[in-house]
Design a protein around this nucleic acid. Structure first.
Length: 297
DNA sequence: AGGGTATGGTAAT
DNA sequence: TTACCCTACCCTC
């Protein structure tokens, strides 16, 4: 589930549902007992989201750091909650809502020093007002690694994951293997604007939707087509809101989507929309101004 | 029942 | 680059 949009959405939801009220905090599986004990009975006033990291600001200057990793997940239910099922690392019971955390990579208290170290490892987050776009452009300028690897690096831009990588590069016609430094500042600004808009849309929609007017209510899509295997059908049904990610064919031109591996993650690209060595078409002057990110949403 | 896969990241090699 | 972390889900047998 989690790329940056999921994290920022969780921050908003948890503030709405749990902030400013005493919480019963526990660790049903006993894997975060100390953390739970320290927080039990306290309340948090706000949550800061940076890239894929959540920082819950509890009373007495206690900060809870949560990182979902690949498997982490929050579930919500009405208070009083049912007995925990499956792995539940942390449970926060509020007056109206109860939230359970499972599978997270990080769920610990961090002190200011650790927080500073964490934030120093993160680049600008397009979902934050204080994001420094120039840092992103400057980071690309000096990297020879493929652009597809660069935007997955949280120090270059915080919050992008495998889906947004595929979609943001595709819509801009960029070959994932193009060296980052060869993209150029103007195209880098446009790419930033794309990522910012996709992430913001993701927060609003609560899911990744990169196709204008996309509506993934299955109509005839749920029925298997003759000669179509179950995997292909599942991909089509579940992933029709994106252009190339985990699709068999490009949404725009229907060419077969090519899969490859970069840093042990699958890269999805359309060889027609994103020709080898392509940095995309020339940016239009208005977009190249660099104000695109602020205007698009 | 068991295998494959997943929107992530770190540490070891 | 590879191993690992070790949850949930979907599929096949």
């Amino acid at each position: 589930m989690p790329e940056g949009h999921t994290i920022h959405r969780l921050a908003r939801d948890h503030v709405r549902d749990l902030a400013r009220e005493p919480l019963q905090v526990s660790s049903p599986q006993g894997r975060a007992v100390e953390t739970a004990r320290a927080l039990d009975g306290r309340s948090f006033a706000k949550i800061d989201a940076y890239g894929k990291h959540l920082l819950y600001r509890f009373e007495d200057d206690l900060t809870l750091h949560v990182h979902l990793g690949l498997f982490g997940r929050f579930r919500r239910q009405h208070t009083p909650p049912e007995e925990p099922k499956g792995e539940k690392r942390l449970r926060m019971i509020g007056e109206r809502w109860t939230v359970d955390l499972s599978g997270a990579v990080a769920c610990t208290l961090i002190d200011p020093e650790e927080e500073a170290a964490l934030l120093s490892r993160l680049g600008p987050d397009p979902l934050r007002r204080d994001a420094d776009t120039e840092r992103f452009v400057a980071a690309l300028r000096k990297r020879r690694i493929p652009i597809g690897a660069a935007i997955m690096d949280q120090k270059v831009v915080a919050g992008i994951g495998n889906v947004f990588r595929a979609e943001a590069l595709h819509v801009n016609g960029i070959d994932p293997r193009l060296p980052a430094r060869e993209l150029g500042d103007e195209r880098a600004m446009v790419l930033w604007g794309t990522m910012a808009k996709m992430l913001a849309d993701g927060v609003r929609e609560r899911r990744i939707v990169t196709i204008r007017g996309a509506d993934d209510k299955p109509v005839s899509a749920g029925r298997a087509t003759k000669g179509e295997g179950p995997r292909a059908r599942a991909d089509r049904v579940r992933h029709r809101t994106v252009h190339v990610y985990r699709r068999e064919h490009c949404h725009d031109c229907d060419a077969p989507v090519v899969r490859s591996t970069m840093a042990s993650r699958t890269v999805y690209e359309c060889p027609v929309c994103q020709p080898e060595g392509s940095a995309g078409p020339s940016p239009t002057p208005s977009l190249a101004e660099g104000e695109a990110a602020g205007r698009l949403f």
